[in-house]
Structure formats: C-alpha cells, structure tokens
C-alpha cells in the first residue's frame, strides 16, 4: 500500500460528496415551484378582478419590452439591463453580468418565491415607479416560461 492511498481515497469520497451537494435544483422541481407561484398570482388576480381569464404570454412580452419610463430615469425599461432578448445575457448598470431571464436558459431563476417577490418589488418600482399587479407578475412569468 502506498503511503498516500488512504488520503486519496478520502479525497475521492469528499469530491463525490461535494459534487452531489453542489448539484443545482433540478429543472422539473424549479418549473413546478414556478407553476405554483403562477397559480398563487392567478388566485390573487381573480380576487382583484372577477373577469380574470388567465395569464397571457403576449401581454408579458409587451410588459417586458415596453418603455413606460414612469419609474427611475436610470431604468426606463426592463430591457435597460436585461436586453431585449430574454435568452441573452444582461448587464447591470454597474457592469455585472445578469443571467438570461428565459426559463429555458436559467431553469432555477424563478424557483425561490421569496427571491422572486424581492426582485419584482425592486424592479417594478425602479422601472414602473410602482409595484406590479398579480396580473402583470403572472403574465411576465408566463412569457418567460415560453422563452
């Protein structure tokens, strides 16, 4: 037996454990969590409007690419930082890369409900100057799920 064989076996075990631990949330789980959130928004939208007839990817697309410029002057549109292409890599005003918004490109992006709410709150306020309605949030997610 070589003197270092034990430690290399240990290393292998540690490497195996770390790689299992580091596995990202699998795509089907993330998608299910996102669908759950969309269902929550649907319930809220229905509570606000009896005529609510489901979310629309087209409305979500228009919301994403519009330039309402009713929020902060530095961020007139979602596309200011995320670019007009949901599958493309965005860039913050401070120069940091932003992972694509499209669910197909960043499968775990919408899996964490708390994180989702945080960024809707921040970015709707920055771009629109107000929080988004459940209808807008649902439309947005429905659109990104098609991308």
């Amino acid at each position: 037996m070589r003197p270092y064989s034990i430690s290399s076996t240990r290393l292998l075990i540690i490497a195996a454990l770390v790689s299992v631990w580091a596995l990202p949330v699998s795509a089907p789980v993330s998608a299910a969590q996102m669908q759950e959130k969309i269902a929550d928004y649907a319930a809220e939208a229905r509570a606000q409007d009896n005529n609510f007839a489901g979310f629309s990817a087209d409305r979500g697309s228009i919301l994403f690419s519009s330039s309402p410029a009713t929020g902060k002057p530095e961020t007139p549109s979602c596309t200011t930082c995320h670019t007009a292409n949901p599958t493309g890599i965005g860039q913050t005003r401070a120069g940091k890369e932003i992972a694509p918004m499209a669910l197909s490109m960043t499968p775990d992006r919408y899996a964490d409900a708390k994180k989702l709410e945080k960024w809707f709150r921040r970015n709707c306020t920055s771009v629109l100057g107000r929080v988004c309605s459940p209808l807008e949030k649902g439309d947005f997610l429905t659109f990104m799920a098609t991308q």
Partner: peptide, 11 residues
C-alpha cells in the same frame, strides 16, 4: 436602499 444610485435596492 430604496433609492440606491438610481435603483430600488430595498431589503
């Protein structure tokens, strides 16, 4: 933070 260099960064 709600007006952090031109963006809402509230926590």
């Amino acid at each position: 933070l709600p007006n952090h260099f031109g963006e809402d960064a509230s926590l």
